[in-house]
Amino acid sequence: MDHIERFYIDEKLADIKKDGFLNYRSKELPTWCPGCGYFGITQAIAKACNALSLPNENICVVSGIGCAGRYPIFMKAYGFHTLHGRSVPIASGIKLANEDLTVFAVGGDGDMLGIGGGHLPHIARKNIDITLFLFDNMIYGLTKGQSSATTPLGQKTNSHTKGNPDSPLKPISLALAYDASFVARGFAGDLDGMQDIFMKAIRHKGFSFVHLITPCVTFDKVNTWDVMRNGYHPIHESHDVTDRIAAMRLAEDQRFFLGVFYQDEKRPSYQEYLRQIHSA
């Protein structure tokens, strides 16, 4: 007889307590809609920080406005909930002032690619060592369901009831085009995959762009959990992450891939580069 391994909750709770990822949570219960993908991302960030044993006080999370803007409230770290779209410049300021900090810029698709989209190319080409988490749920959630910069073409939203007339941005292609030195994509339903990516992104010296696919369970009835789960595929192990053209090909593929697309470890970060030219 094929025996199944039994599940004992007391043992599981003890394991979780021992594991320690809860140390990266604040006391505040998240106010996101139940079922929101942001919970998955939050979980994976906590696990990644834990796996890297980052001291909480050395983490600084900066966000803008939107559902993702709430994120710093739920993480035990230094947080800054700033103006809409302006998280990137503020995060960059923090990093430039204190290089010892691990700085996250967190924002949704509206914040990072919409109002703050203008900041994105510049932080990428400067290669300032922050990690940018783009919580991409392809809609404006906080203003109740208008088209965002990543809403698929033709999708009906509250602002485009006949279908979104704008082609969506491709964050990975953009980031590659902007010459970000680390480009990866995770899916909110893939905890292990995200944790792996986050650990690499945080370790990466330079600007890391992490695109996170997540459903908006309240306002997007098209791109649901199950649709997403079935629509994304892990990047094959044979992919060479140092090959930007191969990464671009993957990014432009009809299929959607998850994992690290591109990583240039040789390129110095902004501050390293400054040191190099000044010490020369």
């Binding site: 919409g114 109002i115 088209s147 509250n158 602002s159 485009h160």
Partner: peptide, 21 residues
């Protein structure tokens, strides 16, 4: 107001433009 425009304006040959800011 924008949502109404998004729905009604195209019907009258106008454009509702949702801008980035």
């Amino acid at each position: 107001i924008m949502e109404i425009m998004g729905k009604e304006l195209p019907k009258r040959g106008g454009i509702m433009l949702q801008t980035e800011d």
